[in-house]
């Protein structure tokens, strides 16, 4: 179905149906709780937009389900995180929650988990830990590129609207987790071959998916098309300020570009910025780069006549990332921003 006629016809209705299944939902508690989650380190293959099958590893939700990225965890300061990680693969792996700021020690780690073994994390989350975290495997420098990564959101105690105590407020939140895929690396791991020392990524994903343009196979399918994936797609009405917890698990630095609104840039690599800049393009570093920003869902300021609805892209502006297999523009790391 053509995206544009689809959007004109019934886009809002479908989006409403999907809403809430992808956004991080959060209700603050006055009491601390224990948040339990089990991940299965597993592997499998995924078809890329050009049909090429690529091998991945993941922190799966089940023994066999490839979860790219891992299902995120959201909790609040004071909670206890109880994470179980079962390694179903032949190689040793681990599960490390990186520190909030670059250079911080890890928040927690399972240590090495041998093949068939189980690792655990039991962590009482201290106050002041609120923020966006990345968890990943660092047994090798490249394991996180293979898909062993995910996001952890720690909310300030008692708050559902702030990133950190006193931050600008939001109504909704989600993770945008970017990855870059060089199948030569994935193949080498799958086949126990020599690990390449240089990388040329050919596929680019947001929350594990690439975009599809109208007319393409998989277009509009939230399990295939990153534009339609409720984990990634921004869908809101005026005032639906949405916190973007942006993580770079991949090998490339990127430029995160939103249409229709500037973002409010709150943090860079876990550090709260001294003042909030309004940016349409944000420099997301590689090597575990992180950004928190708020997409304000204000009326697009330069529309004439004024509008409150519309459809726009968020895409990476380093345009190589908008391709798949060396071509196929619009099959890369992009999602939709829908004003409803």
């Amino acid at each position: 179905m053509d995206r544009r006629s689809f959007l004109k016809a019934s886009g809002a209705g479908l989006a409403t149906t999907l809403m809430g299944t992808g956004m991080l939902s959060w209700t603050p508690r006055s009491e601390a709780a224990t948040i339990s989650k089990t991940y299965y380190i597993n592997d499998g293959t995924r078809a890329m937009p050009d049909g090429v099958s690529v091998y991945f590893k993941s922190y799966g939700d089940s023994a066999t389900a490839l979860s790219l990225p891992a299902t995120p965890i959201i909790c609040q300061e004071g909670d206890t995180l109880s994470i179980t990680v079962i390694n179903r693969l032949l190689k040793t792996h681990n599960f490390v929650i990186g520190g909030l700021k670059a250079g911080d020690p890890p928040l927690a780690s399972t240590g090495n988990i041998a093949s068939g073994a189980t690792g655990t994390i039991n962590l009482a989350i201290p106050s002041g830990a609120a923020g966006s975290y990345m968890f990943y495997d660092n047994v090798t420098g490249y394991n996180r590129f293979l898909g062993l990564h995910g996001g952890l959101a720690i909310m300030p105690s008692g708050s559902s609207t702030t990133l950190y105590s006193g931050s600008p407020t939001f109504k909704k939140q989600l993770f945008w987790i970017f990855n870059d895929i060089d199948p030569a690396l994935n193949n080498a791991v799958q086949l126990n071959g020599t690990i390449p020392t240089t990388f040329t990524p050919r596929y680019f994903t947001i929350n594990g998916l690439s975009s599809r343009p109208p007319g393409a196979s998989g277009f509009g399918d939230p399990t295939i098309d990153a534009m339609a994936d409720p984990r990634s797609k921004l869908s809101g009405s005026i005032g639906d300020r949405t916190l973007l917890r942006i993580l770079n698990t991949g090998m490339c630095s990127h430029s995160v570009h939103t249409h229709a609104n500037h973002m409010e840039w709150l943090t860079n690599n876990g550090v709260v910025r001294s003042s909030v800049w309004k940016k349409d393009s944000l420099y997301l570093r590689n090597n575990l780069g992180k950004i928190d920003s708020i997409y304000p869902f204000s009326p697009p300021p330069d529309a004439y006549p004024a509008v409150t609805t519309g459809h726009f892209p968020m895409h990476l502006h380093d345009e190589m990332s908008q391709t798949a297999g060396g071509g196929l523009y619009q099959f890369g790391s992009m999602t939709e921003i829908e004003f409803i």
């Binding site: 500037h262 800049w277 940016k279 349409d280 393009s281 420099y283 997301l284 502006h317």
Partner: peptide, 22 residues
Amino acid sequence: ASDGRPLPAAWSTTSIEASSAE
């Protein structure tokens, strides 16, 4: 200013590292 918006406070610097389209 950056990206067509004034900064809340001017930033003094001898260099800028920027990404595409900034």
